[in-house]
Amino acid sequence: MSIALITLGGTIAMGGVDRGRTGVVTRLTGVDLTAAVPGLAELGVPVDVRDVQAVPSANLTGRQMLDVVDEASRAVAEGANGVVVTQGTDTLEESAFLADLVWPHAAPLVFTGAMRNPTLAGPDGPANLLAALRVAAAPDARDLGVLVAVNDEVHAARWLRKTHSTSTATFASPNAGPLGQVIEGEVRVLTRPSRHAPLPPVDADRLDAARVALYVVTLDDDGLLLGGLADTHQGLVVAGFGVGHVPSALAPVLGELAGRIPVVLTSRSGAGSVLRNTYGAVGSETDLQRRGLLNGGLLDPYKARVLLRLLLAGGADSTELTAALARHG
């Protein structure tokens, strides 16, 4: 039995200040990270360290995340019982969700990171890494898709949100809660949601070419910034008010776009679902769907964009887009 550890940089791997520069930038390797984890030896599982990328998570790309999934798949094929990925927390909710959409294995793929770097008092990286390794080694964590282990909680990547810019308790799953907890070193899975089948393999070049915009609706919004978007992008995600509303002046602009490219309606609220047929005024969810917008359901705007890019890169038609949004949202 072994666990593969894939490292991508981020706060968890920042170990000092380089001479002549400000801010914490020196990168720790996977060996450095595991050496700083108290109690790792008691886990009793060899850790196969694979330093893949040294990049802030703000610079991660969809192509790189597909490469990470491929590397994790190789580790499983070579005998790893689970895989842990460490990265920065800025984009962790998006990268973990992308991985979840294409991860085909029963073996756990567990993401983690840190909010406090090792130069600060009380860094959370070692505890989060130990928890992630425990989850990756736990038989009960199999066949749950991609997971995120932080703050001794186990979350499904498809529901995870980063909710605070600095708190170590930043990660939460507002619509569902965590799947489990790590208690006295034991992984306790408290609920087992049904797992969606992975999307078909996606060509990285096509993913690079799939440009999907995200537009957040604001007070008194007339949509001027959306002019010409259908000429430069293949899809659009709209983060509307509340249950999926926009100003009435914006509704025809979005309807015109929906006649040319897929437009997915989500909520900017942070939790809860876009509705389907409760309100009927111009700019309501019912009106927007009548104009051709696709309902994103419980998907937050960021995950909807990840999903739409993968679907477009895979050549999904309108029927397949609608079915996938209904399944994942």
Rank of each mutant, 00 (worst) to 15 (best):
D220Y: 13
D221A: 12
S248G: 08
T232H: 13
P247S: 03
G255P: 05
Q234A: 14
A239I: 02
V237E: 11
L224W: 10
G227A: 14
A249V: 15
F241M: 02
G235W: 02
G227L: 02
L236M: 05
G240D: 00
D221C: 15
G235P: 12
H245G: 01
L229C: 10
A249K: 09
L254P: 06
V246P: 03
L226Q: 13
H233G: 00
A258R: 09
T232L: 12
V253L: 06
G244T: 06
G244Q: 01
Q234E: 12
V246R: 00
V217S: 05
V238G: 04
G235K: 09
A251Q: 07
L236V: 04
V217W: 01
V243T: 12
G235E: 08
L254E: 09
V243D: 01
D231H: 13
G228V: 10
D222F: 02
V243I: 07
D221W: 13
L225N: 03
D222Y: 01
D220G: 11
L229D: 08
A258C: 07
E256S: 12
L257H: 07
L236F: 05
V217P: 11
G223D: 11
V253D: 05
L254V: 09
L236N: 10
A258H: 07
G244M: 03
A251L: 01
L229V: 15
V237F: 12
V217E: 03
V253N: 05
L257A: 08
D222G: 03
H233S: 07
A230K: 06
G240A: 14
H233N: 05
T232W: 00
V216Y: 14
V217D: 07
E256H: 09
G223I: 15
D222Q: 10
L226W: 13
P252W: 10
G244L: 01
L224H: 10
L236Y: 09
S248P: 05
